[in-house]
Design a protein around this nucleic acid. Structure first.
Lengths: 232, 232
DNA sequence: CCTTAAAGGATCGTTGAACAATCCGACAAG
DNA sequence: CTTGTCGGATTGTTCAACGATCCTTTAAGG
């Protein structure tokens, strides 16, 4: 009469069920505020003011801080408090070193098609739509999603996690760009090109495109960033 | 009369001095206990008992738990408490997927000598000494140090951090091996061989050796691990 | 005038206690 | 044997308090 229950179906609901912990929600709020630039790098997050503003206790807030600190969005200085992370030029260089190493390795690790490129395709489409809508913040997000999808090709949860953190840090850098359109838009067709190479199973070409992409982005970012933070 | 003070000398003491936050110290204690196997995977860490045993408050202990949870050494189940992480076979596979990707990419990223191989040399020597002393736990640690040194060749703090976490997780797996000597010792000469290839600047050979090393270790580990946790 | 030292206020680190929510085991009923 | 219910134990969350540390201000001295 009744069909057997597939446990796998219920698995997807677990995160929805298990999600709670006010600390997680507070962290999510702060994460969003940081990502959208409302909390600029260098801003001090006072336990008292933030806790009072959000109506949560200091202890709970501290747990949220610890979450975000571990994600690299906040820095914690003993007896001084937490601050929105300020990335140095050295950090930018390190981030791109990681990206080059991992993204390229992920592409190279692909053996025979078919791969699941649906995420990457969705990300490129997302970027093209954002570009049409002139929504440059969304375009930056879509770019990040594309490269997350590239790493996901390696099918490793740990690498995905690492990349999620690294790209979240990169968002902090993006906010230092005063011309988001001029920075993000040129990379959109390059993402499309990389995707095409992957669809044609031309791994070598995809890796070459990816490398030059990352080299260019790094150069551009380091240039802008250093003249803004170390320059005269 | 008095000689000039060399500031560099005092730098080494900073971590000793700046070591703060009881939560950090508690985390360090637990980290060590887990690494040495005293706290076996699956063990429940009761807030009451641990907090009372270490003489710290429950709040502080929870911060330490949160730290280790994010490092992947503990798992946190809502309203049930924290447990020493029990890795699945899938986790082992994922860990080795990451290792193959990153360690090989780190080696391949080397361009022209000279590289700084001092860390790697020290790790191999450490392993050979541990082997002479028949200290198999130390041998496992030395092996981990060697591969950490390999990743360090990429000179990225973020990659180093990732690898530190991944290899700490791997320690959890090692404790499931009932014959540590038989497992660790065969890999010692292979580390030496990889080091030799690097010293000769033969990057291609080093990468090949590394790949087969990791493939063998993964196969062996997965076999043992699955028959122990999913077997009859 | 500048440098150094001390006092004060603000914030963080840590603890202890309290209450609600949840889980776990035992026991009873069907 | 399964289901429902109860009570003890543990966790989740908040609050208040005190000591420790840092930053700023103020004062003294060269």
């Amino acid at each position: 009469m009744a069909a057997e229950i597939d446990p796998a179906v219920l698995m997807g609901d677990r995160e929805l069920l298990g999600r709670s912990s006010t600390a997680d929600r507070v962290a999510e709020i702060l994460r969003t505020r940081i990502a959208e630039g409302y909390l600029a790098p260098g801003t001090k997050l006072s336990e008292d003011s933030i806790g009072h503003a959000l109506g949560v206790s200091r202890n709970t807030l501290r747990e949220a801080f610890r979450l975000l600190t571990h994600e690299g969005l906040l820095t914690h200085e003993l007896n001084r408090g937490v601050f929105v992370r300020v990335l140095t030029v050295q950090d930018v260089i390190d981030i791109y070193r990681v990206r080059k190493l991992i993204e390229c390795a992920a592409v190279r690790s692909l053996s025979m098609p078919p791969y699941d490129l649906s995420q990457a395709e969705a990300a490129v489409a997302e970027g093209e739509k954002a570009s049409e809508d002139s929504n440059w913040a969304a375009l930056g997000t879509a770019n990040i999603h594309f490269h997350q999808a590239v790493v996901a090709l390696a099918r490793s949860t740990r690498l995905n996690e690492l990349m999620r953190g690294v790209l979240a840090e990169l968002r902090l850098v993006f906010h230092a760009m005063d011309n988001p359109r001029g920075f993000h838009e040129p990379y959109l067709p390059r993402n499309r090109e990389i995707l095409s190479a992957l669809q044609e199973a031309n791994v070598v070409r995809a890796e070459l495109l990816l490398t030059s992409y990352l080299d260019d982005a790094e150069k551009q970012l380091v240039e802008r960033y250093s003249e803004r933070f170390q320059g005269p």
